[in-house]
Simulated scan of single mutants.
Amino acid sequence: MSKRITAIILFLSVFALQDAMAQVKIGYTNPARVLSQLPEVEEVDEQINTLIDQRDEELAAKATDLQQIFSNYESSMANLSQQERAVKEQELMEMNQEFEQDRETMMNEIRQKRNELMAPIIEKMNAAMEEVAQEMDLDLVLNEGTSYGDAIIFFAENEGLDITDKIIAKLK
């Protein structure tokens, strides 16, 4: 008898869970597509490209200086003692490491600046997504990808659940 009661409870639980799942309203969006439609993102891209150009010029000048120092060393290497060469090579390695650190610092600065400039735009997009979700009485909104276009495993058979265009309209 207890097995029969357990089976009935299990059956009712599955039925109740199925009923609860049927009531969840889901939509999805593509944040990269939303961002591609916003003029503010284009402005951020222009600012970042300007910053990249400036930093590239600085790094190019340092690279040219480093190359000249290396060429001078190579031409004078025959006139140096073993100890002088070891000291000069150590200096060159340190200069090269400093150059690589400058390059890494530049890349981090650019990433940080882009994140800083994009943060209010992404907040605005998220607020619009929340408004659309509330207007449509959605319980859950999924993303096809990240705000920066990184892929997420995603499948939706019903394109009617795509709220991307509604979010874009809300932002314009």
Rank of each mutant, 00 (worst) to 15 (best):
A63I: 00
L59T: 09
Q90K: 07
A61H: 09
D65F: 04
V24G: 09
V41M: 06
L66C: 02
E46M: 08
I69V: 13
A60D: 15
V87F: 07
S71N: 13
E84R: 08
A86N: 06
F99T: 00
V41F: 03
L38N: 05
Q82K: 09
L59W: 03
E43S: 12
A61G: 10
Q54P: 03
S71W: 02
N72G: 15
V41Y: 04
A60W: 05
S76Q: 15
T29D: 11
I26F: 01
Q67F: 05
A78D: 14
K62L: 14
V44P: 01
E84Y: 08
Q97D: 11
K25L: 06
A60Y: 08
D65T: 11
L51M: 13
N79T: 13
S36E: 13
Q82P: 00
K62P: 02
E43M: 06
D56Q: 11
V24H: 04
L59S: 07
A78G: 09
A61M: 10
Y28V: 04
N49L: 11
L35D: 08
M77K: 15
I26H: 00
N72A: 13
E94Q: 10
Y28P: 07
M95E: 11
Q90N: 12
E84G: 06
A86M: 07
E74G: 05
Q82L: 10
R33T: 06
D65G: 08
V87D: 13
S75K: 13
P31I: 04
D53L: 11
V44C: 00
V87R: 08
I26M: 04
Q83F: 01
Q67N: 12
M77S: 15
L66K: 01
V34A: 05
K62Y: 06
F70E: 15
L35S: 07
L38Y: 00
S81R: 02
N30T: 07
N72W: 06
F70D: 11
K62E: 15
Y28L: 02
Q67V: 04
P39Q: 01
T29I: 10
I69M: 06
D56M: 09
N72V: 02
K25H: 11
Y28I: 01
S71E: 14
D53H: 12
A63S: 13
Q82M: 09
N96H: 10
L59A: 09
E98W: 03
M93N: 13
E84H: 06
N30Y: 02
I26N: 01
